[in-house]
Design a protein around this nucleic acid. Structure first.
Lengths: 129, 129
DNA sequence: TAAGGTACTTACATGGAAGTTAGTGCCTCG
DNA sequence: CGAGGCACTAACTTCCATGTAAGTACCTTA
């Protein structure tokens, strides 16, 4: 689908809620958006969308993340009800992380976004367009 | 749709590209993702998804943005080929901003994400669910 | 004994995103 | 004449997300 030279018409209709003002400053949705669009939040959510994973798996899959940021990101996502933490009282310790129903809902929206970023990254960075 | 207590199976299949490592550190897609998931980037893209708009319109719609951040965000999005800048040599100056084809593609993915954030914000912040 | 893995926490440092303030040039309106 | 809107730019500051480094407690393997 192509957009002509003068795309005055929106491609997608937004809910009436956003008709003016996108949404108010200080609105909870801003906070939520910040959480889920944070640098590592997206990556962790993405990784977990493929199923339950352990701490060390996540470290490897979200390449470049520090242990501190991993712990912090997981904590935020858990507080937000997006990630489930399942600590098993075994030796050595085993903790499994997985998405909650809400987390799956979100990751379903994130996956196409990340895929798009991946597909268009080179063109964008190289100024081809 | 509900997810049972042990959701070992992914809800969505990811492209094979992400099968391991999400995607490499230092990869261009990380940069692109940072641009499009930036605090104000999302809001501007959202606002423009409803059609061409002027500087002062955008200031009002992305409530809370400073002029500096507006200029900076628009510049980044323009460099990334997502926003088109149309300066008309009239008096008083009139500059229209609109999405490019690529920008529309992206906004189509962003809209459901923001809508989701908006719908779930209260529950998430209040720890319900 | 020592090294290494698992799952973290804590303290401190820093860089870049974001905020603040001010200034520009040109025009219109009262 | 002065106030004010438009579309910015520039300088300076602040703050927080992220990075770095190290420590913890327990267990396994060599």
């Amino acid at each position: 689908m192509e957009v002509s030279a003068s795309p005055a018409a929106p491609a997608t209709a937004l809910p009436a809620t956003f008709a003016d003002g996108v949404f108010p400053a200080g609105c909870p949705s801003r906070t939520v958006l910040d959480h889920v669009t944070s640098k590592w939040g997206v990556l962790i959510l993405l990784a977990l969308s493929e199923g339950e994973q352990r701490w060390s798996d996540l470290r490897r899959r979200a390449e470049g993340i520090s242990e501190k940021m991993l712990a912090q990101t997981l904590k935020t996502l858990e507080r937000d009800g997006l990630v489930r933490r399942d600590a098993q009282p075994v030796i050595p310790p085993r903790v499994d992380y997985s998405l909650t129903a809400r987390g799956y809902e979100l990751s379903a929206l994130l996956v196409p976004l990340v895929a798009w970023a991946y597909d268009n990254a080179d063109d964008i960075i190289n100024g081809k367009g």
